[in-house]
Design a protein around this nucleic acid. Sequence first.
DNA 1: AAAAAAT
Length: 649
Amino acid sequence: MLISVTGRQLRIEWNSKLRFTAASAAAAAAKQRIASHQAGGVNRDPLEGSTLHRASMPTSWADLAANSASENAGTSNSTAPTRPVYVPPHLRNRAASASASTESPPAPPNVSSNNNVGSRWGAPRNGWGNRTGVWDRREVNPFEDQEDAAEEGAAASGEEQGNMGINFDAYEDIPVETTGENVPPPVNTFAEIDLGDALNQNIRRCKYVKPTPVQRHAIPISLGGRDLMACAQTGSGKTAAFCFPIISGIMRGQGQAPLRPPRGARTVYPLALVLSPTRELSVQILEEARKFSYQTGVRVVVAYGGAPINQQLRELERGVDILVATPGRLVDLLERARVSLQMIKYLALDEADRMLDMGFEPQIRKIVEQMDMPPPGARQTMLFSATFPREIQRLASDFLSNYVFLAVGRVGSSTDLIVQRVEYVQESDKRSHLMDLLHAQRANGVQGKQALTLVFVETKKGADALEHWLCRNGFPATTIHGDRSQQERELALRSFKTGNTPILVATDVAARGLDIPHVAHVVNFDVPNDIDDYVHRIGRTGRAGKKGLATAFFNDNNASLARPLADLMQEANQEVPDWLSRYAARSSIGGGRNRRTGGSRFGGRDFRREGSFSRGGSDYYSTGNNSGGYGNSGGYGGGYGPGVTSAWD
DNA sequence: AAAAAAT
């Protein structure tokens, strides 16, 4: 006890000292990085990335020694300060699988006496590096529920297990196109890709039989070391598409990394960063990533606002390889120097258009460009966005290096998975109309877990009011919006997912990315002003290839959406009511400012091509390479032949 | 105009 107190005090003292050196070291590192980058010294291929780290590492030995000394001061088995050794995750886990059941598994020789292994794995007391083995006993089994369920009822098929049962047939005719130089060819199966045993096992546990279109294309591109700009929505298998290459890359331990940079002892150095717009989405990504990285030794940690920071700091101190974060909280952590981005090899931006809509561009630019993150080319960057407007194009050219552009058609765009209905409902009739729908649903016996209803409203107050009203009228409802505490939000989401309150009233906080199985019906109680928001909202149903229904309450207040809505429905082979067509014709006179840009069923297209078209030159990106251009499903016998070209006509 | 996000 005394020792730990002493150790703590010592660490605090050292910390303040180190803060000074950390700043100058970071500056030196940045200079060095820029210099080596300019000199071409940075290895652009992460698959042989060892030079990357060496080139960018600060080498102040004195600071390292000081750091080691301070870390060792409070512990009993310390010897002379040793050189911090990086042990890649695949080695960390080696002892684990061999001796998971043993009480005290043997430690790899290079770890055993290393209390200063460092900050990435956090405080010595908690980090794996300090324990007798590398097995993280605290790693909870993310598949527990599922395995329990499987034991109880052996009949539990994939289909029964929520989003595990993906209807792959629905994906078959999703059009995909890639552009860029030397695009790595897509794969048809996970087996074709060398992701490693541990990851393959997790893929099996997830019951993923076959990669989705975005995965088929994106995974080889990322494994090939290329940057990626992907137009795809959540629900298309995006999370796995960026997680698999990251986890596999980290496990390969590309680049014997190195000495721990001299920085505050409590600074952590994640290898991968995933940015997402909302807290709930971050949590969801975390949960998926934990499944994928189970027993790989790769640690995933989440950081977001609205929750006590201390708990997140403790989690970080236990070590982090992949950090999932919302921008605000991450900036906070960076400013406190609790997180350094120096070691980032993978950067993934999820729902980038959403993040810009929410005004995150300054934070994102700060994180990516103004802190200590390696520059494009020295890291691998994946940018995901449902749409591809000018701002995203700018972001792409600033953040990415020689990237591959990948456009995946909307899930359900070419099938009738989501039945869209638009009903003309006056503002004052909305509640009773909703009640009618809910009664009808109940009468049809569609209720309970299998039929969750998600009701979107425009305002937070409106959400609360509607929730109350529904509850009073015998429909168990809950609500999620930005005025509720994070705890309330998470509780509401859980209660909805479990079917406890099968109606969720939500603002746009829930519009994008959230994957809730069994949402059978999305009601746009208030129609959004932006067609993209509409697309995202209805995308909460018809997930993973299942059928869904979307009903919109439309009235005179929504005139501006008439045209894009009618167009969209037509594209999706939905029946467009006559009155809506008339509305659309009337409102289109003013000019289609709200019209979708880019290709019909895709969120956008590679603007580099448009650029080359408009310059009148040859189409650089689609000629003279092995895979650019329309209908680029070469070598990929999957069933989307005709769909690809027609989607662009 | 509203929503989200750091405190």
